[in-house]
Design a protein around this nucleic acid. Sequence first.
DNA 1: GCAGAACTAGATAGATCGCTCTAGCGGGTA
DNA 2: TACCCGCTAGAGCGATCTATCTAGTTCTGC
Lengths: 197, 197
Amino acid sequence: MATKERVSTRDRIVYASAELFRRQGYAGTGLKQILAAADAPFGSLYHFFPGGKEQLGDEVLRTAGEFFGRLYETIADDAPDYATGVAVFFDGAAQALIDTDYADACPIATVALEVASTNETLRQATADVFEGWIAAGTERGVEAGLSAPRARALAIAIVALIEGGFVLSRAARSTEPMKATGAVAVAAVRATLAEPG
Amino acid sequence: MATKERVSTRDRIVYASAELFRRQGYAGTGLKQILAAADAPFGSLYHFFPGGKEQLGDEVLRTAGEFFGRLYETIADDAPDYATGVAVFFDGAAQALIDTDYADACPIATVALEVASTNETLRQATADVFEGWIAAGTERGVEAGLSAPRARALAIAIVALIEGGFVLSRAARSTEPMKATGAVAVAAVRATLAEPG
DNA sequence: GCAGAACTAGATAGATCGCTCTAGCGGGTA
DNA sequence: TACCCGCTAGAGCGATCTATCTAGTTCTGC
């Protein structure tokens, strides 16, 4: 029908979960709260996710990880060079913090820290997402002329600076940390590319 | 009496809480679990912390923040220069991850991300701790000859690289990220000090 | 030796947790 | 029309959550 909801119940549950997980974490978010936010009944959750909260968390992490990975790829493709792409990405992160009153940041890091030692399934999901981002960044570096090990170390540092910037900016409710880490990330890219070897 | 316990009940509760919070987060840690780990009765918790879990969390964050701040100061004082102190600190962080099977990392970041948008008291505690670290790092930079704004931006980046390194290393169960972020932090210190102005 | 403070001890309240269960709606196919 | 099945709907389970409550124990100063 034409009046059928545009977004499926399943997608609404995943979207609402991503929103809540990144604001208050995995353990701090109840299923009732997710379903209320998604305007979905309890039965639907276990229909789509028989594995319960863990399966939902796994899918949310991987979906969000892919989304942000693609976002970076889009920005990097539009940028004239590696350093500029990184700069634009950090600027966008700072703007997103302002737009959402410092609530919506990376949904992976929040969950990653709390599940790293308590839930192997979700820990693996966060590890896979981070590894995907690092691999993508490594490719950019290699394309820019770096050796693979150097490109990888640089990519790791950029991801760490983004995540660290989120932690500090959300805690301080200020974009100062994100701007400082962005500047260091850009400088690191330029310096690495300028190095001999 | 001579057989009196060396560590007070209050301190055992704070210590056990710090241990559990950094492993599984604030929301993911129950009071019963804390008291079991601290070998303390329920009544003692509310005797020492009438404000309940929130007051306990506030004290744990500030105590742990001060502890790690002092740890850095000790290392930096023993090091011949700024860059070396940073290098030694990152090496220590990597070793701590190995020693604790990637469980014990910074107790502030885990809690910071989950409370930033949900608990103003604890958010402020994490902000104060980070600001203290950044101020201490800024002082080191100024002593090394940097202007205050430059020293501050560098200090922020170093803290972000540590926290980001913890996130990635715990997720991947590997010290590779911590080593990569440490190298970038040291390079950033050297480059900033070498810059004119 | 005694009074009062400091602390221990744990049962329990009331709410919420993740999850399971059965019932029924609604739209596509025979 | 009759049927089927994907999905909706929510009551309710046992467990666990934070927090309160009353007693009992240990320590300290007079």
